[in-house]
């Protein structure tokens, strides 16, 4: 993959800019994830993730985010291939120059993070797209939309034909199946609350009848993190991400020409703090769930 028309420094500047954007996104993502730890049965988490999933501005950002991620990956791979080509015959002895480990393994830690992303998408984002099954949720009010209530009124007043009545009853049975679950949780239709932890089987019949079925990331997360193997992989990958980030942030500043004797120490310290905050912040969730739930 050669992009000869773009100068090396231009490519690096783009990588640095999109990298910094991704750093900011991580912080937002972390903020939402940490809501999982609140003892509020996921109220904050659900509110936040629902906002992220439905807000139109956020949806625009989602497109930008994917574009940015794609550019970051493509450019770094292109740069890396050039870098490998720049030394066709390698040294027989490993380098003993004093450098940080993180800086030399960016492509590998980055690759690990990419693998994790695929897994992460399979677990969460694809559920949203409907490509993969997961847990679902729906708001109680949605079960009884005005349309349905009108239909109910019509049925009770005998305004429906036999066929229509039969159809309506089938609908109601499907809705009831979910409503029963909600009642079991102590929810009634007027509560305006989420009916959570619904399986695909639960929500499939609702297709075409009821709007507003959303993935239930809260329960999906809990379920995943209760799987110890997954949690351990998750933690290890966040350590890799931290190694990636420590170098990434300093490196981005350097690439953008922001290097000054007065501030270099600060930037370095900040990169470490940022990377640790991100890694610890994300990793604390599976640890909490594994050991305290």
């Amino acid at each position: 993959m050669n992009l000869p028309k773009i100068a090396s420094i231009s490519k690096k500047i783009v990588v640095a800019c999109v990298g910094l954007f991704l750093l900011l996104f991580l912080l937002v993502h972390l903020g939402i994830n940490l809501c999982l730890l609140r003892p509020d049965d996921g109220a904050w988490f659900i509110a936040a993730s629902n906002f992220m999933g439905t807000n139109y501005i956020v949806k625009v950002f989602e497109v930008v985010l994917f574009a940015v991620l794609f550019i970051h990956i493509i450019l770094t791979i292109a740069l890396q291939i050039q870098n490998w080509k720049a030394r066709p015959v390698r040294y027989s002895q490993p380098s003993r120059s004093k450098t940080s480990a993180g800086s030399k393994t960016m492509i590998w830690t980055g690759g690990l993070v990419l693998c994790f992303l695929v897994l992460h998408f399979a677990n969460f984002y694809f559920v949203k797209l409907g490509w993969v099954e997961g847990k679902y949720m729906i708001k109680t009010e949605e079960l009884f939309s005005t349309e349905l209530q009108n239909e109910y009124m019509a049925a009770t007043q005998g305004k429906l034909s036999e066929e229509e009545t039969a159809e309506f009853q089938t609908k109601m049975e499907k809705i009831n199946a979910v409503a029963v679950k909600a009642e079991a949780e102590g929810l009634s239709s007027s509560d305006m609350k989420w009916i959570l932890n619904l399986s695909a089987e639960d929500v499939e019949p609702l297709e075409g009848i009821v709007e507003g079925v959303e993935p239930d990331f809260y329960h999906m997360s809990y379920e995943l993190f209760q799987n110890k193997a997954y949690s351990i992989i998750y933690i290890i990958l966040f350590i890799a991400l931290a190694i990636h980030l420590v170098h990434a942030m300093q490196s981005a500043f350097q690439t953008l020409g922001l290097n000054h004797n007065k501030y270099n120490k600060f930037i370095e310290g900040f990169s470490w703090i940022y990377a640790i905050v991100i890694a610890v912040g994300f990793a604390i969730i599976p640890i909490y769930i594994m050991f305290f739930v």
């Binding site: 090396s8 690096k12 740069l79 120059s97």
Partner: peptide, 23 residues
């Protein structure tokens, strides 16, 4: 611009801020 263009053209790799050079 001229120097960087030439540097790229000659097949040097890209800087990944590893700083082995400085060391």
């Amino acid at each position: 611009q001229k120097m960087v263009e030439k540097m790229d053209e000659l097949g040097f790799g890209n800087c990944t801020n590893t700083y082995a050079c400085e060391a």
